[in-house]
């Protein structure tokens, strides 16, 4: 069976009247590294916890390698949550023992391998004494010890210094290279994501705005710049535009460059920024 590692169909999650997610459909290809981006409150963490099975969707369905996820952790999925909850009073070694005890499939070698990477984590240290970087490394060791086929990372890089960010990404990318793990990671650090991600999933207000291969998406968008006052006449969709007294800049999806405008493809950061700005404008307009 050649089922997609992760497939979401018409996924919705409502908390009372709040629609954290609504009508989300997407598919992650095998071995892809997907950046999950969107403004704060777009539903990124909700989406990740639904895929992991921590929460049940209000509507719709998620399948991981063809089997439906419903209300409990899929054995092939590992989730690193944003707060990286660990038992603070345990030593690192004890925490790994806990990992072995709480999982049907567990590789102590794999977990140790991750802990020994980079500067290495002192296995007899209490978890609460670890630095933010080492704590993340321990959390990733716990996640990878499950030998997941799908790795979900919620803000894995937040509150890490640049060196630790780089090293954390290296650990994850090594796993992708060696085991073909499919990764979905949410982050605000677009520059870091650009180097490692090949797919993009852009959420806003609980809906998928853009999904697909980053190369293709960038190729499908243009940043057009023209003199102020000139009509932005394009057959594509204007995602976001800004005007100064001298020029008009716009992010356009599809179509060709309008008359009198210069067009070039955006980089990942410019693309995401364009969408985030548009989202903010929409929300402000509604107030």
């Amino acid at each position: 069976m050649n089922a997609s590692p992760v497939r979401a169909e018409n996924l919705a999650k409502h908390f009372g009247r709040t629609k954290a997610l609504d009508g989300c459909s997407f598919e992650l290809p095998e071995g892809s590294v997907t950046a999950l981006v969107g403004p704060n409150g777009a539903g990124k963490s909700t989406l990740l916890s639904l895929v992991a099975g921590l929460a049940k969707p209000t509507r719709g369905e998620i399948t991981v390698h063809g089997t439906a996820v419903r209300g409990r952790m899929h054995p092939d999925v590992s989730l690193l949550t944003q707060k990286r909850p660990l038992y603070d009073q345990f030593t690192v070694r004890e925490l790994m023992r806990a990992g072995a005890a709480m999982n049907d499939r567990w590789s102590a070698e794999r977990a140790d391998e991750v802990l020994d990477l980079l500067a290495g984590v002192d296995k007899d240290a209490k978890v609460r004494t670890l630095s933010a970087g080492a704590r993340t490394q321990v959390a990733i060791a716990l996640a990878l010890g499950r030998l997941p086929k799908v790795l979900l990372l919620d803000e894995p890089l937040s509150d890490l210094d640049p060196l630790a960010r780089d090293e954390t990404l290296r650990i994850v990318m090594t796993d992708v290279a060696e085991r073909g793990t499919t990764v979905l990671l949410s982050s605000h650090l677009l520059t870091d994501l650009g180097d490692v991600c090949d797919h993009l999933l852009l959420l806003d207000e609980g809906r998928v705005q853009v999904a697909g291969e980053i190369e293709e998406i960038l190729g499908d968008h243009g940043v057009v710049v023209g003199p102020a006052g000139l009509d932005l006449d394009t057959d594509g969709t204007v995602v976001d535009s800004s005007h100064t007294s001298r020029q008009t800049t716009a992010l356009v999806r599809g179509g060709s460059a309008p008359e009198g405008f210069q067009s070039e493809h955006p980089d990942l950061e410019a693309l995401v920024m364009g969408y985030l700005r548009a989202s903010r404008t929409r929300r402000l307009a509604r107030r």
């Binding site: 921590l54 952790m73 603070d88 499950r146």
Partner: peptide, 15 residues
Amino acid sequence: EQGTHTLAFTQSVSR
């Protein structure tokens, strides 16, 4: 309070 229940919930033991 400390969020450590998610640590247990994200392993394979049932709730």
